[in-house]
Write a protein that binds this DNA or RNA. Structure first.
Lengths: 148, 148
DNA sequence: CCTTTTATTTGTAATTTACAAGTGTTTGTT
DNA sequence: AACAAACACTTGTAAATTACAAATAAAAGG
């Protein structure tokens, strides 16, 4: 069997590199971590700080500071949860939404381009595989539990 | 078509998380970036600074400082290339080799576990898909050129 | 030679990170 | 109701990581 780790290392590195470059939108410079945060707020409905921090595997104090930055950048808004005022709900501003959507679109465009180098059959196989992989990883006991 | 980006985002995040946790070996604490550097030196034969930095998409000055750290940790050795003394060849010390090999083994063990949740057929499909994906990404013009 | 290019390093300063300790809020116990 | 414990989040602080600009040192080109 070939070197499986190498395949994965190459793949994840390529995605990491991509993300690094694709986050300067409309005057706002967004870091890789910040784009991940925006993405999570984008796809969840008013998640709490803890929720997002845990999903991203970030230390909560680090996360707190990142959110402060994003609030200053006017991309994110914090509102206390009425039922439990310890909890902070996160949501995107109009601008934050725009930035998140733009990153999403760029990302999808890139993926489209990548897939354009494949046949229909291959494309479906790859997508099926990624799904399988995600499921299998979520079942693993080694580390990085499900988290979604 | 489903949300392809979401699949990829989840996948790469899971791998990122994994790497974060799997790098404390024999008294040495190795960061994610450092483990990537060790890996590249591990699998290439005496690569130059530039070579590795470019592969990892790192700024050369940042890379230079990381290498300084790894040299201090006695995991990496720098030797000037005789034919061109501007160039620095990188190699692993015995200890560096041990650390890199240990991370590699851990990583492979994790992947084995992940694959154990699949059938033989699925496993082959997934591996084939990752290969396809790497090829397709290397052909993309958007960003992050081949790099290997 | 002497200028230019190339590979790497340092000056500097901002950003990111995380441990420990703190604040404010809710829950549980009596 | 009162108080301790648990919880969600924030700050103090200090180290690690990052990257631009400028410096060094070696090779290549004219």
């Amino acid at each position: 069997m070939e070197n499986v780790r190498e395949l994965f290392q190459t793949m994840t590195r390529r995605f990491g590199l991509l993300n690094k470059n694709c986050c300067q939108i409309g005057g706002k410079e967004v870091s890789l971590v910040q784009s991940h945060i925006l993405y999570e707020i984008f796809r969840n409905d008013k998640p709490s700080m803890q929720q997002v921090a845990e999903t991203l595997g970030m230390d909560i104090t680090t996360f707190s500071r990142q959110i402060q930055t994003l609030v200053k950048m006017e991309l994110v808004v914090k509102t206390p949860l009425p039922e439990d005022r310890r909890v902070t709900q996160l949501s995107l501003t109009t601008q934050g939404n725009y930035v998140a959507a733009k990153i999403d679109a760029d990302m999808n465009q890139y993926l489209d381009e990548v897939f354009s180098n494949m046949s229909e059959f291959e494309r479906e196989m790859v997508i099926k595989s990624i799904k399988l992989l995600n499921e299998a990883m979520s079942k693993s006991t080694v580390c990085c539990k499900p988290l979604i």
